[in-house]
């Protein structure tokens, strides 16, 4: 799917993750930057998860920055889902 706009979700609090998304033009691919307070232990899992969710939404061209403070998997998935639906302009039931 084609991203419509810049979007973000999450916070810099402990146990949360901040996701920033910027649409890229066609064929530019995925540019993913991940930093985490638990990079050594969970960095690989985190990057796999980000790619899986992007696959799920069929997003191929994106610049995504993830700043993780030890978020658990359901939180990471939720923040990705929120940021992506916002970037797709598909967010529901919220003020912009």
């Amino acid at each position: 799917m084609e991203l419509q706009r810049n979007a973000q979700a999450g916070t810099f609090e402990s146990s949360d993750i901040m996701i920033l998304i910027e649409p890229l033009k066609n064929k530019q691919g995925r540019k993913i930057e991940i930093s985490s307070s638990v990079m050594l232990q969970y960095g690989d899992m985190l990057s796999e998860l980000v790619n899986n969710i992007l696959d799920k939404y069929e997003i191929e061209n994106v610049h995504l920055i993830a700043k993780d403070k030890g978020a658990l998997e359901p939180t990471i998935i939720a923040r990705l889902e929120t940021a992506i639906t916002r970037a797709l302009n598909q967010q529901k039931g919220t003020l912009l």
Binding site: A9, G10, P74, A78, T82, T94, L95
Partner: peptide, 19 residues
């Protein structure tokens, strides 16, 4: 917050499913 309603809803959904 009014501009985080989607965020909270999605987070609670995911938490209910796994915690």
């Amino acid at each position: 917050a009014l501009n985080e309603k989607d965020s909270a809803r999605i987070l609670v959904k995911n938490m209910l499913n796994s915690i």
